[in-house]
Every structure is written in C-alpha cells, then in structure tokens.
Nucleic acid binder design. Structure first.
Lengths: 201, 201
DNA sequence: CGCAAAAACTAATATAATTAGTATTATAAC
DNA sequence: GTTATAATACTAATTATATTAGTTTTTGCG
C-alpha cells in the first residue's frame, strides 16, 4: 500500500535520530527531515504525529537503546567493576548519539506510559548494580538518584562544552566514579559525620 | 530620547527572564515578549540583537546572579559546611529561577568573552570551597568538575521531573552531598582502590 | 524654537508547522 | 485479471514565527 519512497515510521524516526545526532537537536525540523527523506513535509504526517510525536518516538528508542547498552555493560559484573562498566556505557552512549541523548534526558514530565516503563527499566539496571553494594530499599533509591545525577551531570556538561580547561576528561570521569564508589561503600543510608553536620540545622 | 513605553535593554531582558521563569524556556518568543511589554515585536530589536542576543544577555545575568548567590553562601564557611551551603544555594537558584537556570547551563560552546569570564567566576567559588578540603592544582580542577557534574545533574533532573518516586528529594540531595564529601576527603587525586580497579585496564 | 537621533511603528519577507483536500498506486478481494 | 479500497504522497492554504526595511513620531539639547 505504499507509494514511491515507501516511508514507514521506522524509517522516519531513524532518519530523525541521524539528523539530531549529526546536526543537533535544534536542527530537527519537519522541513529538514523531509528533505533528507526526499519527500514533501506533509508526507511525514502519515507516519508520525507531528514534531511532538516524532520526539516522543525518538525518546522511547533512546531510552531503550540506553537501557540495553547498560544491561550489557553490567552483565557478569558486580561492585565497583559493575559501576565503572555501567558508567562508561552511559557516557559512551551519549558520545555516540549526542542528539538522541540530549532529547532523551530532556523532560520526563509528560511521558507516556511506554516511556515511563522504559525509564523504569533503565533505573532497574542501576538498582541491580547498587544491590552489589548491599543497598536496598529507600537507601538504594536515594543512591539511584545520586548515581543518575552524577552521570547525567557529567555527560551533559561534557556535551555542552562546559568543561573548557585542557585537563583530561577521562581522568575527571574516573575521579567521579571513585567519589561515587567511596560514597556508596561508606555511610550511605546514614550521615557520614552526624555530629558536626550542617544538614541537621 | 525614548518614546512612549520607554524600553531599555534592562527592561527587555528582565521581562524575558520573568517570562522563561514562569512559562518555560520554549515559550520565549519575540511575539510573547513584545506582548508582555505592550509593544510591537520589531520594537525589541532596538534594544536587543534578536532572540540570540537576548538569550546571550540572559545567560550572562544568570551566571552572574548564580555566582553572587554562591559567593554569599560560602562566606565565612569552610569544609563540609561550605560545601553544603554552596550546594543549597545552587539548588535554590535553580528552584527560584528555573527558566534562567535552564538557559544558563545550556551551552558554553559559543560563549562570548564576558560569559566565559562570568563562568570562570562561578568556578572560582567552587575552587575556594575545595581549597578548604586541601585540594589544589589538577586535583582541585578535577574535583570542580565532579562537583559541578553532581550539582548540575541533580538539579536538572529535578527540574525535568526526572525523579518520579514519592521519596524525599531533600534527603536524596543530602545523600549526594555526603557522597561528595566522602569522595573529597578520601582518595581524591589518587585511586581509591588501586589494585583491583577496573579503571586500569 | 528647531534639529538630530533614538525609538516605536507599519509593511513586507522568509521560514516553519500543520491541516484540508486531491490524486495515485499498491494490495486484496472477487 | 479486474476492480475496490485504503494507504500514501502530493499541492494548496493557513497560521505563527523571526527578522529587515523604511517611515513616523517624539524627545532632549543647542
């Protein structure tokens, strides 16, 4: 039932992903995408619900690809080794697909159920790694947030060109991981220095 | 030499900041801003170099305001207390001016010299705090990246609605700070567990 | 009082997303 | 094999956007 170019949602979404990865998230326009696919802009609306629907579909694929990459990374590993492997996979994903990563980690506010499930799957991988640190329950959930914050923060600053100095990024990333490891092994779930802590004002 | 509404660059930029803080970064349009100022869109071009120039000016103010807030926060404090105060100021800034924060931490790639200087001033505050941890030289610079990553990651995930679970955000933030404190006090500058580290492959 | 410059305006252009409606073509039913 | 149907790409039109050009008005200063 297709006509000349034989578009499908898959083809459109993949082309869009390629476009944001090479040109940046801002350059994702219906016009540019249509040109890339040798088609007139309105034709895309047969396969995708406008720019918003397109972005949603891209986010879903991004989350799933990231989760798959992380799952592979932690297979057969535990403790610090698993943490490092997970983190490297995370950072590598952002480096390989910068546009898709930026889009994926933009906003989870209006996420549809599918996207929320995909997000949960990603979190489950992190939780599995934290299990190896002996963390369970609320402590593990807090630790998940800490881990995600650190990884997302580093990666997004790196991508945004926020680290200007001529200083090894790999080394900084290693230090970040050592810091996380240190925090996860010591004193997670209770305050590190309960007495003098300014947290208990 | 002004005419009726008496616009100035300050008035325009401040209105734009108010707009992004209340409506979100995506809603910053020349049309919306002009309407807010009771003026026709082209009039804004007498005070601001289009949307790009406007954003640049906003970023500059954002960086300076954030720096000022952080400087106040660390005055007279040291060590963990300074770290906590700095972090709380950082997070509070993002909460008070979400749109401006999002805009500010977007991209430092094409930053003009003024913005770069403002960014450096912010980093200097962090360096001062790290001085209290006995960190100097490259170790301090790596630590700055670690700190910025963690803070920016947490804050931007929080703002994007990335933390969905019904679990105290304040507590997660405290855990993040304890983790950072732990990493900064132990083993920064050298590997925490040199022997079995997967980092030395 | 008049002059010059700043500032706001109208009008026009260009690009973008999106919708409506039309034509074509491939698949499936007969 | 022919025909009906539905998918799909198209043209045309609408709306919203940023931006530039050129005009008019006002205001501060000599």
């Amino acid at each position: 039932m297709a006509r000349r170019p034989g578009l499908t949602e898959d083809v459109v979404v993949n082309a869009a992903i390629e476009l944001v990865n090479t040109q940046g998230v801002e350059q994702l326009t219906v016009a540019a995408l249509a040109q890339k696919l040798a088609v007139r802009p309105p034709s895309l609306y047969n396969h995708v619900r406008g720019l918003d629907g397109l972005r949603q579909a891209m986010v879903l694929r991004g989350l799933r690809a990231l989760t798959a990459k992380m799952q592979t990374a932690v297979m057969g590993r535990a403790g610090f080794e698993a943490l490092v492997s997970l983190a490297q996979a995370y950072r590598a994903f952002a480096a390989e697909q910068p546009g898709l990563y930026a889009l994926t980690l933009r906003s989870n506010e209006n996420a549809d159920p599918e996207a929320q499930a995909a997000g949960q799957a990603a979190i489950d991988v992190v939780l599995a790694v934290l299990h190896g640190y002996g963390l369970e329950g609320d402590a593990a959930l807090h630790a998940t947030r800490v881990l995600r914050s650190a990884l997302h923060g580093f990666v997004s600053l790196e991508m945004a060109g926020g680290f200007a100095l001529p200083l090894s990024l790999d080394e900084s990333f290693d230090q970040l991981l050592c810091t996380l490891d240190c925090g996860l092994r010591n004193g997670f779930g209770q305050n590190a220095n309960p007495d003098s802590s300014p947290l208990q004002q």
